[in-house]
Each structure stands twice: as C-alpha cells, then as structure tokens.
Design a protein around this nucleic acid. Sequence first.
DNA 1: TGCTACGTTCAAAACGAATTGAACGCTGAA
DNA 2: TTCAGCGTTCAATTCGTTTTGAACGTAGCA
Lengths: 184, 184
Amino acid sequence: MGRKRKNGEANETMVLDETEGVSSEELVQRIIQAAGHTSQSLGIGRVTGQIYAHVYFSIEPQSLDDLTKGLGISKGSASMGVRQLEQWGGLEKIWVKGDRKDYYRSRDTFGKIIKNAIVDLIGKRMEISSALLGDVEKELSASGKKNADLTEEQEFVRQKLRGILDFQKKSETIWDGFIVKMLK
Amino acid sequence: MGRKRKNGEANETMVLDETEGVSSEELVQRIIQAAGHTSQSLGIGRVTGQIYAHVYFSIEPQSLDDLTKGLGISKGSASMGVRQLEQWGGLEKIWVKGDRKDYYRSRDTFGKIIKNAIVDLIGKRMEISSALLGDVEKELSASGKKNADLTEEQEFVRQKLRGILDFQKKSETIWDGFIVKMLK
DNA sequence: TGCTACGTTCAAAACGAATTGAACGCTGAA
DNA sequence: TTCAGCGTTCAATTCGTTTTGAACGTAGCA
C-alpha cells in the first residue's frame, strides 16, 4: 500500500490492489462506509451507522471530537447520532476523570441494539397505521349493528375490510416473532 | 400532512362523529389515506399504497384515468405505481375489448405481494451491504494466512470483524424465516 | 468573577427522493 | 394514411429529510 498514510482521510476511491493485502486501517474505513450505507438504506440515516462502526473499531473510547475528525461530520451530527445510539444501547458513555469530554465505547449486543432501533422506528410507524385500521374496525362493527341490511356496495366494502383486518392480525403475530428472535 | 387540496374533499380533519355512523365512502377514503401512510413509512412511497387501496376497494376494474381522478395524482405517478404493483403481483391487468384503456383489478394475496415487495426493496439493499461485508471477509482470511503473527491492532480488528460476520449469518437466517412465514 | 472547553440546539442550507407534466411513441379506427 | 386516445418516459420541479454551523447554556478552573 504505497498510498498516503497520514490521517484517516482520503478513503474515497476504494480501489483495491488485488495482489497485495489490505491494511486493517483501510479495511475499517471500508466497513465504516458500508455501515453508513446499510443504516441509510434501513432508514436510520447514514451517520448513525458510521458513528457506531467507528467506535466499534476503536480500541480507545471516542470523544465527539474524535468523531467529527474521524468521520468528517459536524459537531451537531455527531452529538445527535451519539445520543440516538446511546438510547438504542449501541454506545455507552464513559467518564474519564480530569477530562471534560464525554467518551463513548460500543456495546456489541447487536441483536438488542437493532431490536431497540426497529421498535423505536418501525414500531412507531406501524402503530399509527394500526391505530387507523383499528378505528375503521370500530366503525365497521358499529355500522354492522345498526343496519341489518346493507347495500351491495356497503357489503362489498365490509367484506374487503374484513380481509385486511384478518391479514393485519396475522402480520402482527409474525412480526412479534421476528422481534423476539432478533433479541435472542 | 400538508397535502394538495383538490375539490372540496373535506376529509382532512378525520374527526369522527361519535353519534352517527360513517358512510362506506368515507371509510374507504380514510383507508386509502392510511394505506398511503403505511406504504410511505415502509419506504415504498405514498402513491403505491393509495393506488392499491383504491383498486382494492373498487368493484369495477380501474383505469389510469380513474386513478388520477380518484386519487388526485398525475398520470406519470399512476403509470409508475401501477407497473410496480403489477410486478409485485398486487394488481393484474384486465383487457376490455373495444376499449383501448388498461384496467386493473387487485389481487388479495397480501402475503405474496408484501413478500415480493420486501424481497425487491429490502433484499436488494441488504445484498449490497452483504456483498461489502463478504469482500471484507475475504480480505480477512487472506491476510490471516499471510501474516501468522499480527500486530495488536490487527488482531483487534480481526476479532471485531468476526463478531459482525457471525451476527450477519444469524440475521440472514432469521430474515429468511420471516420471509417464508409471510409467504404462507 | 471571568475564561475556556465542552455538548446541545435549531434555523437555514444542502441534499435526495418523490412527483409532475409536457413530449413522445404506439395502436387501433376511420 | 392520418388522427385521436392511450401509456410511458424523464427533465424539471416540488417536497421532505438530513446536515451543517453559529449561537447558546453549562461546568470546571484559576
């Protein structure tokens, strides 16, 4: 790797030298990029994954400053990302006495972290949809009692709704199972 | 949320009159909104869910024109949404002889539809991340053979990487199980 | 007390994804 | 053949989300 060595900068090209091995520093840089890509495509945001990967592959606990320098992100982004990851149990804060900075180290209970993130993000979103359908279900049963005989259209809607509601119940069961397995 | 207001469709507030029933038309409109919300929060896009819901609750097969009018979306959006839903098996095209329009009716195999959508969207995204990690794994084992003794840092990275790769394998298994269940 | 180094906040900017709609090609009818 | 009506495309635009960075509050220290 007769490449530039200095600060972990200039990792844009990602060109691999097939004949030679890759330094672990380069490897880590690539994984950080990959983590950013992954977290972004999961709707969590790019920096979140990058921050976690950076800390995960750092022997020493990392400060906000280390993150802004190491990842080239702003102090604001670092602050927010770190807090989110802390809430999900991905990072834990380390107090170093005599040092006013906050330091973070990673926790490697991936399952729990992801479960927390999923519940936090997807779960909240699903709840809203669920609630909306729940309202509809109430309307449905209420109108069912009032009108013994429905128009053809009403009956059609009724039947279609039933189909959705049934599927929703089934989905929730599967989803819960998924979460449980992830947690283990 | 702030959406384009068409002709006095005053269904924005979603306030329910507790004492009276709700017309099935209103109910359907609300479900269409909910479907849009759901599909959007799943990263599929708002119109996709709206289109499917609209067709699902229509007795007659629906044309692109019906969709643009009924949902207040552009012809382009309708065309693209319909095609995507067709690919996922959510809609099927109906030929009406003597009519040059394409008509669509919904299929109600929710599980299959969602499975196709998930595989198409999430799967593709995961593949990229997987591939990146796969590359890394290769590098890892390659460098492992060359250097019998590693620096402390290299060994650290190595160990951390192993943790991720293990988790990845486990995740894939769970994920596959999830897909299978959804399909049933 | 004033000073410095830190983390947090949030309005604004940058960014990217969704949506539009005019232009286009195609097809069937006349 | 031309024409009208249809679906498709994609550059431009709109819209929502993410990121920035200056301003701010706070805590430790002399």
